[in-house]
């Protein structure tokens, strides 16, 4: 009996210990990037289409992974299934705060982001307990901007936290248009513009106005393991992002033509969005300090960063 017990115990421990063992033999010329869609992520699509990383480093292979959302990307990076992810600054800071070894490698873009509401709602104070605000997820940049506005206008950052519904941008648009209890949607280009075309909806909050300064909507983040382990690939990646961003800024027409192959939008629409004065493709990472300070104050982070070098890799352009 006892022997059997010990045997089973050992078997179970074996079972568990297998979970953690990672295959160390990672080919050092492969970079795994999460592919994401949307106007804000346009440089990624250009980078993929023009094979910029492959051209910048001979023999490099890029594995493009499909991920559902920022949380999934972050989890994949914890599990060492992904080297590079693109996301907004708040989800990055949440991971950093929890001890993830990763830093910002590049800025990427700013696109218009804001809170669209039914025009019966004239201010944040008008939200009742039955009103629902759709946004991608708690802890997203949309959620943090909403909290900032709540703090400014109503004195409590978390006052609307229990009115949130987590819906992807397209689902959020449908839910808002369906006219049930979702009466507001914190979203970004191009969903923002589509919703505002209807006279029933107004822009209650504008991201930049709430934030009070410019900020990077999306930044590129890489794991410590990738930065340390594959410096050549890291350099090629950063250079490629820069080239993709330059390409969009210098040849918006051509970029729109490429993007229209991948996105479910016409070339004209894409051109309008990427060349809009409000959009900005830029590799400088902007606004980390203000996000960090606010998120610490509101309790979304347990600690802020001291030195920009804590959260941003060397030689990356930034404006706090």
């Amino acid at each position: 009996m006892r022997k059997k017990f010990i045997l089973i115990f050992l078997l179970i421990s074996l079972l568990f210990s297998g979970c953690g063992a990672q295959e160390d033999a990672k080919e050092n010329k492969t970079v795994r990037i999460a592919e994401q869609f949307g106007i804000a992520y346009a440089p990624i699509q250009i980078m993929k289409h023009q094979k910029l990383i492959e051209n910048n480093l001979y023999g490099a292979t890029v594995v493009w992974e499909q991920m559902a959302n920022t949380t999934a990307i972050r989890e994949a990076m914890v599990a060492d299934k992904l080297d590079v992810g693109f996301m907004a600054i708040p989800p990055f800071l949440i991971g950093w705060d929890k001890g993830m070894e990763w830093k910002i490698a590049t800025g990427l873009s700013y696109v218009p982001v804001g809170l669209v509401t039914k025009n019966t709602i004239g201010s944040l104070a008008d939200f009742g307990t039955d009103d629902r605000i759709a946004l991608p997820q708690p802890g997203s940049v949309q959620h943090i901007l909403l909290s900032m506005a709540c703090k400014d206008e109503l004195g409590d950052a978390g006052i609307l936290d229990n009115n949130l519904v987590t819906l992807s941008h397209p689902d959020g648009l449908n839910a808002l248009m369906a006219g049930n209890e979702v009466t507001a949607h914190f979203t970004a280009t191009p969903y923002l513009e589509t919703e505002l075309e209807s006279s029933e909806y107004d822009l209650l909050l504008d991201g930049r106005e709430v934030f009070g300064q410019d900020f990077s909507f999306i930044v590129g983040v890489t794991t410590d393991a990738f930065y340390q382990g594959s410096p050549e690939l890291y350099d090629a990646f950063v250079l490629s992002v820069q080239e993709a961003v330059d390409f969009i800024n210098q040849n918006p027409q051509e970029a729109a033509a490429i993007l229209s192959e991948y996105y479910d939008m016409t070339e004209e629409e894409i051109l309008k969005h990427i060349s809009s004065e409000k959009a900005d493709y830029n590799t400088t990472a902007v606004g980390t300090r203000k996000f960090s300070d606010f998120m610490v104050e509101a309790g979304y982070l347990s600690k802020g960063y001291e030195d920009p070098g804590d959260i941003i890799w060397e030689d990356v352009k930034y404006e706090e």
Binding site: F16, S17, C19, G20, A21, Q22, E75, V78, A79, K98, G99, M100
Partner: peptide, 9 residues
């Protein structure tokens, strides 16, 4: 004692 990441385990 296992080779696991405290963030996930």
């Amino acid at each position: 004692f296992g080779p696991v990441n405290p963030i996930s385990f």
